[in-house]
Design a protein around this nucleic acid. Structure first.
Lengths: 334, 334
DNA sequence: GCCGAATATGTAACGGGTTACACACGCAAG
DNA sequence: CTTGCGTGTGTAACCCGTTACATATTCGGC
């Protein structure tokens, strides 16, 4: 392996100054046609590639964008990550992935480390980060999936409205007692989904606060919560579960109690991850445009970084009902 | 937001030279106790953090490690990614994720880009990369899950042996005709799994090359392959599927043909991803220590990078049978 | 009391691009 | 013919740590 050549090597070979080479490289300033050719030839001959680190040092920007997610092993996040990676790479950025475990200390440590590396911006899915901390680091950021503060750009979905639709759907197919397995209280979208459930449920004469049981945003928590719910209240025949992963737990819970889904219990959830298509029964769910929101967040961030636009953008996408097999069909008798 | 302070600011405030500050920062060279305190105070007062880009420029290394995976949306990879991220972050590296789609051009483009950023090393899951190309880039690398070449360090599992065990297991529980839905031929571990199947199957009087059908490493391909297999050969009562994701497709295929799993058809697969626990029936599978191999690959790479060890290490982990509900229980009559 | 090693600190070059500024030439307008 | 702008190119400072090398002081050993 030969040593890496530098811009000075190119300059020497082409018999011009480094400034001229730099101009050719970046396509700015004046360079005569003839000189440009000479430089191009030298670059080719040496197989020269500019050193991005040197570039970053001068510019103070590194062409890197980071994504913070609680845990890439949660099946909601890979699609988001893929979207962000596609978009960032396409625009010439390098993609850094950080698993935060929803732990503020980890988030802060990542921010610190990334700032030292002159990272251009971050896309962050977080329930613990605050606007004050973010401001301290002064890195362009876009919140994704969960809102951090009104002064930080965000891309989310209409969680409350989607939850309303989900709950209403259960009513429409004939469910008489509809319960909710909610997500963790400290996560904004979980609160919104709970509100959406309440918007519909509270208007019903059968409503009872005991119909709400908190699971975490995971399989086990939801399974337990569902077991409690169904044991205490065998009259429940409809369940709105805060996300798909939890719904899988809910199905297992129903199974363990000998209840058949969807015959005795209809389950609808939220997110629309691939996993929901492969379970038995396949999940009826309010699907988010996961890839799109990830891609859009990346797009927003890149614009913010490149155009130095400071304005805060807030975008909300719509979720869409996907009817599969975890809910009774409308009109079927029970 | 105040301007970032530099080492020269610290030096001025502490009334010492930049060299001394650097020595304090890195804990090398001689610094008197008194001076060390003064510098520490100045650093604290200015909230100074060294600029990693400048450091990288001088050192020619960036404290970044990249992971190449075909597609993070394939549920096998998030756990691997998590393991690598945990290990790299713990050692002070920044983690870069690259989705290659098993496309050599993309891999080359990433290598090029990462080299320009002085990435310290890469961990690569690839079926298309070759040793020659890797050598051209001269970046320390560890192959993961799939072997690239004997002169590149690798961490894999004993695919062939595991496949043998899986096939033997189907025999042991009483399957009379065992077929294999194989992975793509260009992937080394898929070839190994096929060989393992053949090791057992070819010794059986019923063996027939038509009992092998190639699916891709995905849901749809496996579903189709299984449908073909079961339609042509209704006598099949055991299926070794090349991975868990494919097994989900195989179950769906069996379902679509009115076959009950495991009563009429036992299915065993490979990988041991979380998804396999949540499907109905839950998958019997040869589980890889996914997190461990990811973590080990990262560990090996970091050692290689930090100690500048050039030796090639080849490690193979063992897979472990996990009996769940997609296979008949031993001794049960059919 | 002298010498070499250990300790302590500073100066300046270096890593590899980028760009402000200076300079030179050609050509058109006045 | 001069002024002035557009074009073309080079020199050197700059981004910010790191470290080789030089210098100075202290201390133990003989």
């Amino acid at each position: 392996m030969t040593e890496m050549s530098t811009i000075r090597d190119v300059a020497k070979l082409a018999q011009v100054s480094v400034a001229t080479v730099s101009r050719v490289l970046n396509g700015n300033g004046y360079v005569s046609h003839n000189t440009r050719e000479k430089v191009a030839a030298a670059i080719k001959q040496l197989n020269y590639r500019p050193n991005d680190v040197a570039r970053s040092l001068f510019k103070g920007r590194s062409k890197m964008i980071a994504l913070f997610v609680p845990d890439i092993m949660n099946p909601f996040f890979p699609e988001l990550a893929r979207a962000v990676e596609d978009m960032t790479t396409q625009q010439g950025f390098t993609f850094v992935l950080c698993n935060t475990d929803d732990n503020l200390n980890k988030e802060m440590a990542y921010l610190e480390a990334l700032k030292q590396k002159s990272v251009d911006g971050i896309i962050i899915v977080s329930s613990t980060m605050t606007a004050e901390y973010m401001e301290n680091f002064d890195i362009p950021a876009v919140a994704l999936d969960r809102i951090i503060h009104t002064n930080i750009s965000s891309v989310t979905v209409n969680n409350r409205e989607g939850a309303k639709e989900a709950t209403q759907y259960l009513k429409d197919i004939g469910c008489r007692r509809i319960a909710h397995v909610s997500g963790p209280e400290h996560v904004s979208n979980a609160r919104q989904r709970l509100k959406g459930y309440l918007d519909i449920a509270q208007k019903s004469e059968w409503f009872n606060y005991e119909y709400i049981e908190q699971g975490e945003y995971n399989f086990e928590g939801a399974k337990k919560a569902t077991q409690i719910l169904l044991t205490k209240h065998p009259e429940i025949d409809g369940l709105f579960v805060a996300n798909d992963l939890m719904a899988v737990g809910a199905i297992k819970a129903a199974e363990s109690l000998g209840l058949s889904v969807p015959d005795q219990l209809s389950i609808i959830s939220f997110d629309g991850i691939k996993l929901g298509e492969t379970t038995s029964p396949a999940l009826t769910t309010m699907a988010q445009p996961i890839y799109q929101i990830g891609a859009r967040a990346a797009e927003m961030l890149i614009k913010q970084v490149e155009q130095n636009e400071a304005q805060t953008l807030v975008e909300e996408f719509s979720v869409k009902l996907i009817e599969r097999d975890s809910t009774r069909k409308k009109g079927e008798n029970q």
